[in-house]
């Protein structure tokens, strides 16, 4: 059975720099020079970090954090 790959992505248009994702899951998110969020690398989430990815998603006031399965 092929295991699914979980990914996070920050919608750059929606993000307003609340920086909640970075505070809750710095392993998965970083901030640019303006303090706006973006996923680290290609956004791949290891199994150990899945809960943190969901936490970041459920604390973004702008609904800018997407968690998808590929």
């Amino acid at each position: 059975m092929a295991s699914k790959i979980l990914k996070v992505r920050v919608d750059r248009e929606r993000c307003q720099g609340h920086a909640r994702c970075f505070a809750l899951a710095p392993e998965l998110f970083e901030l640019d020079q303006f303090g706006n969020g973006r996923e680290r690398g290609d956004g791949t989430v290891s199994a150990a970090l899945e809960a943190k990815a969901r936490l970041a998603q459920s604390n973004c006031p702008e609904l800018a954090v997407e968690v998808t399965e590929e």
Partner: peptide, 8 residues
């Protein structure tokens, strides 16, 4: 203003 107010 934003760069002066990042968490860092």
């Amino acid at each position: 203003l934003l760069p002066a107010f990042t968490p860092e």
